[in-house]
Simulated scan of single mutants.
Amino acid sequence: MAGGGGSSSAADATAVVAPSLPQGAAYAVVVGVGFVIALIMIGITKILKRTVGEDNRKTEMFMTANRTINTGLTSSAVISSWLWSTAMLGSTLVGYNFGVAGPFWFAAGCSPMIVFFSVLGIACKLRVPQAHTLLEIIRIRYGTVGHIVWIVLCLINNIIAVANMLLGASAAISAVSGMHVIAATFLLPIGVILYTFVGGIKATFLTDYFHTFVITIIICFFTIKAFVTDEIASPRISTNSS
């Protein structure tokens, strides 16, 4: 009996969950939707060039959008930047393991960085209004040696961040559809590269706004779905049972 129970437990531990979506659906979303969003953003960039005169061939427009990004686009960009795959998967994991307190403390650990960086951004804007990047400010404040050190640190940080985002999203897509992780890793950035290359930073801000809108709808849907699911003993079930 004990041996049979042990083998059953081992089989359950090594069981593979079948993907819920076909690979074709994953390729359609990764490639098709990615290209559609890229084409939309490229089209918006062309329209803005004709109507408002925003020429992305100029360095100032490509890198800073002529410093015309308003509060709405900026706030949506901050939200979209923090809703990367690693953060969403990590918060979901701690929520699954520890309940509502998990995502709360996960967000509590990330929030101070956003608050402090907003203060830093305001100070930099007031003191160095013509700067384009953080590295320019570092060079002015700390000289060439500090500038080189920060270039290396920023490069390492960006490599790690991009790797986390791509691998996290690719792993999630692979788990849901069975799509190969390497294929997802190489196909996911194509659409982003296209609209960023054509539209510059303004296109990324517009895309962030769209991402935030879509993600908000998805989060609201899954939040309501979680509370009305029988398996987690929702308040509706508890009320009916009492």
Rank of each mutant, 00 (worst) to 15 (best):
S170A: 15
A38D: 04
I114A: 15
S118G: 10
E54R: 04
E60H: 00
T196R: 04
F62L: 06
Q130L: 06
V100N: 12
Y142E: 01
I182F: 09
A163Q: 05
I37M: 14
N66L: 13
D55N: 13
T74W: 07
T92P: 02
A226L: 14
M88Q: 09
I40K: 02
M61G: 04
I122L: 14
N56Q: 10
G99R: 08
H132K: 12
M88P: 02
L39D: 03
T196Y: 06
T216I: 05
A87S: 14
V145D: 00
V192E: 05
C110W: 13
S81W: 10
Y142W: 07
F62K: 00
I182C: 01
L135S: 02
G6F: 12
L126W: 04
S75C: 09
T133R: 01
T223K: 02
F186A: 15
A169W: 07
A10C: 03
R236S: 07
L89H: 07
L155M: 12
R67T: 03
I140S: 13
A131I: 01
V145S: 07
F227S: 00
A161M: 07
N66Y: 06
V228E: 14
I114F: 13
S170T: 10
L187M: 12
T71V: 15
S234F: 02
G5I: 06
A123N: 10
T74C: 08
I148L: 13
G4F: 13
R236T: 09
S242H: 11
M1T: 09
V94F: 09
I37L: 14
V33I: 15
A26I: 11
I219V: 15
I40R: 02
R236A: 15
E54S: 06
A11N: 03
A226N: 09
I160W: 08
A171R: 08
N164L: 14
F227M: 07
G6W: 07
G5S: 11
I173H: 01
S75Q: 08
L155S: 10
N240M: 12
V36A: 15
I217W: 07
G121C: 09
S238I: 14
T92M: 11
L39K: 02
E231L: 10
A18W: 00
T68V: 11
A38F: 11
I79Q: 09
G95I: 03
A10W: 06
P129A: 09
S238H: 10
A183M: 01
S8G: 04
A25L: 12
S7P: 00
F104I: 15
I215P: 01
A163N: 07
A108R: 05
S76M: 11
G24Y: 06
P22R: 02
A107N: 10
Y96N: 08
T216E: 04
I219C: 11
P19Q: 03
I217T: 04
L194P: 02
S7M: 14
A108C: 12
I47V: 14
L188S: 08
I159W: 11
L206I: 14
M165L: 14
W150S: 15
N97S: 11
P129N: 05
A101L: 14
S80I: 13
T14P: 01
H180T: 06
A18L: 09
K58V: 12
P129Q: 01
